[in-house]
């Protein structure tokens, strides 16, 4: 394996790990449900995407072809993350989950 590929894989791995961890920190420390929704939908999805890219580079340098499965996983995660966020937000609005005092604007429930 070339040194360049090794550097690229390592960088992608670390970036992915950092984003995943930040998403989880956001989930643990932000004040209310709606703000916590932001961490997983963005940071974690991008983190897994970066890890998947490193896996694609790794297996293609090993000469095992380009990983279609990895790309399918990423595409699927990027498509479903906003949908599950939307469903959870709807459920939270229905249950009238507590929002932090600093929130401006109103929710609605129909």
């Amino acid at each position: 394996m070339s040194t360049f590929a090794e550097y690229a894989i390592s960088a992608m791995l670390i970036i992915g790990g950092v984003f995943t961890l930040i998403g989880a920190i956001g989930l643990a420390r932000l004040p209310d449900f709606y703000t916590r929704l932001h961490g997983p939908t963005k940071a974690t999805t991008v983190g897994v995407g970066a890890i998947v890219i490193s896996s694609v580079i790794y297996f293609s340098t090993l000469g095992r072809g380009i990983g279609i499965e990895e790309i399918l996983i990423t595409a699927f995660l990027f498509m479903t993350a906003p949908i599950s966020a939307n469903f959870l937000a709807k459920a939270a609005m229905h249950l009238e989950v507590r929002t932090s005092e600093k929130t401006r604007g109103q929710t609605w429930d129909q």
Partner: peptide
């Protein structure tokens, strides 16, 4: 934009100040 947005959110999560959430119609 997804990449930029994730960096933004990551910076906000790590910074000590409280976020200013808002509902917008």
């Amino acid at each position: 934009d997804i990449v930029v947005a994730s960096v933004d959110v990551a910076r906000l999560i790590l910074s000590p100040r409280e976020p200013r959430p808002m509902f917008i119609c």
